[in-house]
Structure formats: C-alpha cells, structure tokens
Design a protein around this nucleic acid. Structure first.
Length: 483
RNA sequence: UCCUCGGUAGCUCAGUUGGUUAGAGCACCUGACUGUUAAUCAGGGGGUCGCUGGUUCAAGCCCAGCCCGGGGAGCCA
C-alpha cells in the first residue's frame, strides 16, 4: 500500500508525536542505530533511530546501503544536531535487500561517498538514487512543468509535432532512418535500388530533427504555439553539449517579428531560472555546494567568479546584450586575442561563421552576460530565415550563455513565397518535398517568428552540471544506448 | 570524425631510470564501542594492472594495433 506520508512532509510540515509509516531506500546505517532513509520526495533524508538491543540482529544486518525498507514509528524531536525531527522506530519490514558482501552475490555499487559522474553514467539505472541525480531530475521535472506554465499563461497552445517524418528538408543534420524492411534482404526496384514503396509508410521516413516546420503550420491558424518533444540527430558528435536524442522547445508566433521573438525568448529563459530559484531551493542549494566543493580542487585562476545560485540570480536580473553579427565581428576584430593572434581561428573579415572561442569571448570576457546575436550572413543560416533588405543578412538570432554557448537559435521566418523559393533553389533543396510547407506561404501567409530552445542545455545552466549526459536520465550518444 | 589525456582491488587513486611478494583510503568480513551525521578503533580477505601482439634475462612501466572513458574542436540545440 502507498504510504500517505512522504519524507518531505514529515521533515518540513509535521509535528512531533505523529505516527509515521514511511517507505524508502537506505542511504547510510550508522552506529547500528541511525538509518538515513530517502524516498525521493526531497533531497533530505529522514533519520530513523532503532534501539538495536531490542531488534533482531539478523534483521539489522540486512539493513545495507541501497536496501528498501518499510518503517513504522513515532515522529520525535531529534536529540542530535543535524535534523529537526527523527523517527523512533517501532517496526521494520525489509522490502528489498541490497547485497553488500561481494562473497554473497552482486554488490550494490553505490557507497555512502562521492562517486565520479563517469562511473555513475555507467550505472545510469541506479544513479537516480544519488543526491546529485535526485536533485537534477527533480529540477528537470520542475523545468518541464514551468515551461508549459510559461507558454500556457501567455496563450500558447502546445502542438505535438510528429516524431516520424517523411521530409528531409531542414538540413539540420544527419537523420535516423525509420523502416520495417528486412535490412539483410530489402525489396529492390527493377534498377536495383531499395524499394521504399514497399516500406511501412510507402516512402523513406526518419526520426524528426526539428518540429519547427510543423509548428509554423499550426501557428498559421492557432496564432501562438509551441512544441516540446524529443529530437534526433545521427551526428557523430562527441561533446559535453550534444546528444543523439535530446528535447527541444520550439515556439512559433504569428505576426511576430525578430524583436518580439527576442523578447519572448529572453522572458522564457528568465522565467525558468526564476522558477527554479523559487521552487527548487533545496536541490539548488545542494548542487551549489557540490560545485563549491569541486572548485576547491581547482587552481584559483580556474575557479568561477560566481557560485551557481549567484550566477542564476545574475542572469535572471540582467538585460541580455543584443548586437548584430556585424557589430560582433567588429568587436572581435578589435579584440586583444585577435590582435595578439591568440584565437585559433582569427577573424579576418565579414562573413565567416563564429567559432566557440569567439562566442565565449563575447559572452564571458567582453559583455560578461548573455548575448543575443542577430542578423547573420544568409550563407551560414537556414533557408527559412527572412532575408533583410540588404540582401546579405537574415533575421536570425542566437542566444549565447556563459559556459554553454548557443542555448537558443531562432529567426523571423521568410513569409514571402517568391523569396522563400529563391532561397530553396539557391541551396539546392528538393522543392517538391516541401509542397505542404510552401502552401502556408501561398494561402494567407503572415509574418511570423520562432526559436528552438535546447532543454538539456538549459538544464546544464540551471543545475551547474557540465555534461548534457548528466541531465537526461538515459543519454543516447554514439555507441551508447545501453539502458 | 580530428586533437589530447587516461584505463592498476567494488569505488577514488599512488606505483621512481623496466628489477624480488603491486600499495593507500573508502567499501566488504570479524571483533570492540555506542546519539551518530560519509561515525570511530583494531585485525582480515580481496588484483587477468583494458585487450592482442611485440621488444627484453625481466614489462603495470617501453613499442604497435584495437576497445572503452574524460577534456577540447568541428557540427549544432
């Protein structure tokens, strides 16, 4: 039976004298007397005190780190210093043992000590039970909830864009094919190619790389929409910022221009940060301390100027710096590292794409706050972005965050049919695959804008973790789909 | 995919110019103690040194290939 009480309510809202029935997992068992138990409702553990002289010795021996217990007892004021209340144990049922002795079987791998994140990644099925990942995934939930709240409060409608799609048009990277054909003996056409007409959908299909194009169609009727779903990229990128399966939020707004788009994105990010500060305080305090402890091992020069929580407050309060690509190139060209040739890629003129080192310089050294870059050269941006009157730049915007880089990428969309077709031809995109998208420009087209927000990158910033593989429960990366 | 660093006990790591029986802390087992906060104290068990091949009288250490992981880069969110 599900207990009515959680450790969270017992620790913070309950008074001594209460009868307690609690179920949870043992974190530590000290001095044969103190069981520290956690049920996931909060990062804090409940201390359960047993009178070992009255308890069965065989039962006590089975109370190991990781085992699952059902405990009945009385809530009392704590005699010790670490907690307000504790439970005087009356009875214990062991719901699940966790072996600690290697001679008796497979040992529960988590110990009451700090483990490396790399080790925990290899036991992703158990890492939920650590303080760090408990905090991270409670915050991930809170951010999911806050994301929907943010858009709902502003009159947006959530659109479920398809996961399997038949259009390979955005050029947003390599795709994962979806097929039910037998890979070893696929049906062939007379000319010897794989005959996808006989495949499940009667054509080639793949996992979505973005819900944007579908969201644009919905925005041309519902006005303000957003998607929030998984996205798949089969790119062989091995970095702390990339996943083969990640979650993206993509708002799309009719009658909005690039300035509206920037306003929305900035408000969106600040709302989430403020929500976390307000509602995830315990977990953030823990992650804050975790980072401080980690920094103690670093050299002074490598330590960050602000703690996690200070950084969150700072970004929530700051106006993001808004500059054009052209202005950014100017700043970078005149910058010290460019003049002293410290950049690996020197900025020698207008038109080149910015590298990570340049984005970091702008955000972390020059402005020292989030930066929104706009109006990039059209050559380095996607076909659907609205061309400016200069004919050279497009109404694109990227939001760059300290320590993370690009967290948002968006644009005002090209709503003029002929201009859009021009761009499609310039980039040699097969137009007939996009007939449904072009229809939105044929029939009642309207100016509109939107962006994509990488959910895991946002979580990196909010939790202070440094690898996206540690903010998604089961990361999918090249050569890794174990769980 | 490229560059770079690494892989030694269940975990975190040390291991000297190649040289006898590969160490420590935590975890585990036995005992002591009992209001602890990753409890403490004493004793004990635990190793295919990532894999394969090579050099050498001798390889954890040197060389080659492969596998796995971290960091950085590219691609991007």
């Amino acid at each position: 039976m599900l207990p009515k009480q959680t450790i969270k309510t017992l620790l913070f809202d309950s008074q001594p004298g209460l009868s307690v029935h609690i179920k949870g997992w043992v974190r530590t068992f000290r001095s044969h007397r103190f069981i520290s138990i956690n049920d996931g409702s909060t990062i804090h553990n409940l201390q359960c005190v047993v009178d070992f002289e009255k308890m069965d010795d065989q039962l006590l021996k089975r109370i190991t780190t990781g085992s699952c217990l059902s405990i009945k007892g009385l809530l009392t004021e704590s005699l010790g210093k670490g907690q307000r209340v504790e439970v005087q144990v009356e009875s214990i049922d062991i719901l699940g043992d966790a072996e600690a002795d290697p001679e008796k079987g497979d040992v529960y791998p988590l110990q009451p000590k700090a483990h490396s994140l790399e080790f925990l990644r290899e036991i992703a099925h158990l890492r939920f039970r650590t303080n760090t990942f408990g905090a991270v995934f409670r915050i991930r939930h809170a951010m999911t909830f806050a994301m929907h709240t943010f858009f709902h409060e502003r009159g947006f409608f959530n659109i479920h864009s398809p996961i399997i799609t038949g259009s390979d048009c955005e050029g947003a990277g390599e795709i994962f094919r979806v097929s039910t054909l037998d890979p070893s003996r696929p049906p062939l056409t007379p000319s010897g190619e794989v005959d996808y007409a006989q495949d499940f959908f009667g054509k080639q299909t793949h996992l979505t790389v973005s819900g944007q194009l579908e969201a644009e169609l919905a925005a041309m009727a519902l006005g303000k929409v957003y998607t929030f779903g998984p996205t798949f990229r089969a790119e062989n990128s091995n970095t702390a910022r990339h996943l083969a399966e990640f979650w993206m939020i993509e708002p799309e707004v009719a009658f909005a221009d690039l300035n509206d788009n920037m306003d929305l994105a900035e408000a969106n990010l600040k709302y989430l940060i403020e929500y976390a500060l307000k509602n995830c305080n315990d977990d953030l305090q823990f992650l804050n301390q975790r980072l401080l402890d980690e920094e103690k091992n670093k050299k002074k020069e490598e330590r960050s100027e602000m703690s996690l929580i200070e950084r969150l407050r700072f970004v929530a309060e700051q106006e993001f710096e808004r500059i054009t690509y052209t202005e950014a190139i100017d700043i970078l060209q005149k910058s010290k590292p460019n003049k002293e040739k410290k950049f690996q890629y020197l900025i020698d003129g207008w038109g080149v794409d910015l590298q990570s080192e340049h984005e970091r310089y702008l955000v972390e050294k020059h402005f020292k706050k989030p930066v929104i870059l706009t109006d990039y050269p059209k050559e380095i941006k996607a076909f659907y972005m609205r061309v400016n009157d200069d004919g050279k730049t497009v109404r694109a915007m990227d939001i760059l965050f300290p320590g993370i880089g690009e967290i948002v990428g968006g644009s005002q969309r090209e709503e003029r049919l002929t201009k859009l077709q021009e761009r499609i031809r310039e980039l040699h995109i097969p137009e007939n695959n996009l007939w449904w998208y072009l229809d939105s420009r044929k029939f009642g087209t309207a100016p509109h804008a939107g962006y994509g927000l990488g959910f895991e990158r946002l979580l990196l910033f909010i939790t202070g973790m440094s690898n996206v593989r540690d903010v998604i429960p089961f990361p999918r990366t090249p050569h890794n789909a174990e769980f």
